[in-house]
Write a protein that binds this DNA or RNA. Structure first.
Lengths: 339, 339
DNA sequence: GCGGGACACGATAACGGTAACATGATTGCG
DNA sequence: CGCAATCATGTTACCGTTATCGTGTCCCGC
């Protein structure tokens, strides 16, 4: 089609010359803004199309002082947590002209600072970031930036601007209630050893606190490093049950290792949920196909993404308190006995 | 710390005034470019820090005509394929100052055009996109943009600029070889019905072609719509085996449904791999913890990401042919009998 | 003691758009 | 039929940074 390789990049000027109108008019046509007659609109559009012109948002953003990006800063991609949250965000952003841009911190505060700095240097229209714990530097940056900031996933703490999430303390406590009501008493915990995973920490704290209120405490715990996998779930389950064979319940800090543990226990012929009960956290689709449905807590990931997006997009007002707390809901499954 | 809420956003000028040097010098300090004395460097840095200044890449990009972004355009996030590829890309981009920005097309050509248009409007330094099949418009845009374009995952076709991937035809054919060598003869296929998933299509084509060379053809096939899950794997496996009970092998178009099928078959007490063999595609970590290791093909996702990133970053020259074909490698597992 | 590099920094002009206002042509209405 | 409102387009001045070139100072060797 194009015979010539355009060595000089195309600009509005090229389109304007090709269609015989001013650059301003071309700009208006391309953005559907202001009055332009149907005739010139057509002329401009065909000119732009045949030239293969693509607008320059760098220049546009500078001139208009507006950038249609929303920075989304999250700890990890491999976690099954992420795609759901992002799904909710993009679904809600779709009709707003805003576009999410993702940055990953790997649970490292210094990486978070760096990613945030980088994102803010693009002058986005808003920021969505995971967690309520941020460095002093990060808080300062966000304060200075003067744009909507929504912290997601967690509501146990003091938001910079707005928070949308669940209370992980409550999620832990409610699962403890469930387990205790079913009559389990010798409870073990398996989770990641990540000082920076504040949500997992709070969940466990809420869980233990509730046990305490009933005069109980964890009978055993097992920590692991690095990512979660079925394999690791098996390994740790074997380890904890070898060490403490008379545990009657295992609480896993996420569904992936919970599923691994479940598979291992089934192979070993444990009576589940009679002799041994199991529960995870998250509510991931993966669990749907397992031989037995693992009991878990729905972390409301999609809803969290949606509400956060609605707020940065201005579809929904920031609540007075700055906090939107969704209710974590237990998904019964088959790995806790009925009571 | 900051007592005043700065209503006017900070610019280089603010830092320059606060540190008593010109904006140009501040710019030099912040980018480590050109000669600046240690003394003024220090002055400027502290001024920038205390003000909380964050550079404006919109303005910087316009002035320098350089943007440190690499557009990454892929069909899906939920696929287990994606995080690995992106992991390879960011690992290799990390020390280059380049940053990946991800766009998702949901296997829709028109979405791909839109996403590409959007990405190119940020004038990135390079583009990495999945697949070799693109609309005429997309090819034109990429031709015009005059930047490195690397098409990934697949090498069965004509690249626009450079392609890094595996031959899916070959991957299918080699799995067929493996299955036939083990003596299986009544083979069924389970896969997504997605005309736009060209890689799955080519894999199946290579597979069937090889069967044909041995005078065989697929004894049954089952297609599904939408995303892959363990659950769907179970469902389809049940369906195909009910319909054609004497199949002795099932080839799944990905590991997730393969794993679902495997779990179902094990529950039903099938003798695997004796009576029935199974194989998937991808080589995902998930398989590690299953009761039995599913035979699969490693699609070399991390390597593909790395090589693609190396090329857009200029760490590695574009090959003469424009094609870098990695070898898909079969990961034996336990669901095919030894031969 | 003088010419000429380094060195450290500043002034100026882009970069490619858009906001805001200005302008000429048309239209509607009393 | 005249005047104001409306419509379609153009003009001008930035937006915040960087490339390029220019300027002044210091130091070194002959």
């Amino acid at each position: 089609m194009n015979m010539k390789r355009p060595r000089r990049p195309l600009t509005l000027r090229d389109v304007s010359e090709a269609s015989g109108v001013s650059e301003m008019t071309v700009s208006r046509v391309l953005r559907n803004r202001g009055d332009v007659s149907a005739a010139t609109r057509e002329k401009v559009l065909t000119a732009a199309r045949t030239l293969g012109y693509v607008p320059n948002k760098i220049a546009g953003g500078l001139a208009s002082q507006r950038v249609n990006l929303v920075a989304v800063v999250i700890p990890s991609l491999s976690n099954m947590v992420f795609p759901d949250v992002l799904g909710g965000i993009s679904a809600e952003l779709d009709d707003t002209g805003l576009q999410p841009v993702v940055g990953v911190t790997n649970y490292s505060p210094s990486r978070e600072d760096a990613v945030l700095y980088d994102m803010l240097s693009w002058r986005p229209s808003g920021v969505i970031l995971a967690g309520l714990e941020h460095s002093r530097a990060a808080r300062a940056m966000l304060d200075n930036a003067g744009l909507p900031v929504v912290e997601i996933m967690d509501v146990d703490g003091e938001p910079i601007d707005t928070a949308v999430g669940i209370s992980h303390r409550r999620a832990g406590a409610e699962m403890a209630d469930e387990i205790l009501a079913a009559g389990y008493r010798r409870i073990g915990f398996i989770g990641t050893h990540m000082p920076e995973d504040h949500r997992a920490r709070k969940r466990l704290a809420g869980f233990e606190e509730r046990l305490g209120e009933h005069g109980l405490q964890l009978a055993a715990r097992e920590y692991y490093q690095g990512g979660s996998s079925l394999h690791k779930g098996r390994e740790l389950t074997e380890r904890i049950l070898t060490r403490e064979p008379d545990l009657d319940f295992l609480y896993f800090s996420n569904d992936m290792i919970g599923a691994g543990g479940l598979l291992w226990c089934m192979e070993k012929g444990y009576d589940i949920p009679g002799r041994l009960g199991l529960a995870g956290f998250n509510g991931v689709e993966l669990l749907d196909g397992l031989p037995m449905r693992l009991t878990t807590t729905d972390a409301r990931r999609i809803d969290i993404g949606r509400r956060a997006a609605r707020i940065v997009a201005g579809k929904e007002p920031r609540p007075e308190s700055g906090i939107i707390a969704l209710a974590p809901t237990i998904m019964p499954g088959e790995t806790i006995r009925k009571h």
